[in-house]
Amino acid sequence: MDERIAQLLKLAVAAPSGDNCQPWRLTWADGRLQLFNRPNQDTSLYNHAQRASLLAHGALLENLTIAAPGLGLRAEIRLFPDPVAPEQVAEVIFAEGETVNDPLSYWIERRCTNRKKYVPIPLTEFQRRELVAAPADGAAARVHLVHEPDEVRVLAALLAKNDRLVFENRNLHAFLFDHLRWSDEEARASGDGMDIKTLELAPPDRLAFPLLKHWLLVGFLNRLGLPHLIEHTALKLLGSSAGIAGVSLPDLEPASLVLGGRAMQRFWLQATALGLAVQPVAGLALLVQRLRSGNTDELDEAQRALVTEVGAGLDRAFGSAGRSLVMCFRLGTSVPPSARALRRSVESAR
């Protein structure tokens, strides 16, 4: 493999994915890169119809597109090249091209999730303008950015309910704890999932958190109000945001989702370039779309009602009615995160 391709793939897989599950497989032959989805990597309720995974694939392809010109390559992407193989997400054909550095390429390996409490420094007009314009010209994805403190508070209250749901729904709970890595060694060995340090837990919470992986205990604590406590903590973090953004799509077709993932990645890279800390808070947006697609599995009546109510609230707050909201982010100013999620090597993704 061309050394430049190896370098490019390393940057491509720096893309984000749900709980850092990295649902991709890459093959390289005859000067062509094939990108496949691995449907069993993300089994969470959030990933209905592989939507979360397709967003992640879009982010990977965007990284690749941004980085390629810097290495003197031109990447031509064909989405879903084989109509009977939906797991083949894209084929990328490379050609020699002019060496031009995209300013966003610098930020690919610096982009990360920051779950710290943010400092209440407001977004400037310049930042807001750049963020809303982050998806490439003509992209069908749209960024909805809310920055007025009252409106941020409304959205924070809605999105904080996701953390509560994680501790009320067995599937969501299991997915989270399956992807937590409890030590540096474990994080390095697996190369995926989330280092416990990335959750930025306060010292007492850090001690208690391992106990919460036991669903029976969680079930008991839920009767004592644990989900509300967790929601309250999430609300404090979300409330410290200078802005909350949503990314919406005109439809949820697989190709639209991949393109949406590309727009999402551009947004995240741009926010990083603007010096902003970013945390994706996508769970509820994806659950809302799952419910709206008629899939009510594994959500009880109260949870369905909650998701429905949140969906309406998000559409109102973002002005996204008639479109499909697939991703939300909180934004602000903060010190760097305590740790970053690692990636499996490119070789192991093949």
């Binding site: 400092v119 420094i121 407001p122 400037t124 310049f126 930042q127 370039a273 603007l274 010096g275 100013t333």
Partner: peptide, 14 residues
């Protein structure tokens, strides 16, 4: 002060 810091950082990006 927060507004000034935000304005400074915009300038640094530009």
């Amino acid at each position: 002060l927060y507004k000034m810091i935000a304005a400074d950082r915009d300038l640094y990006r530009q």
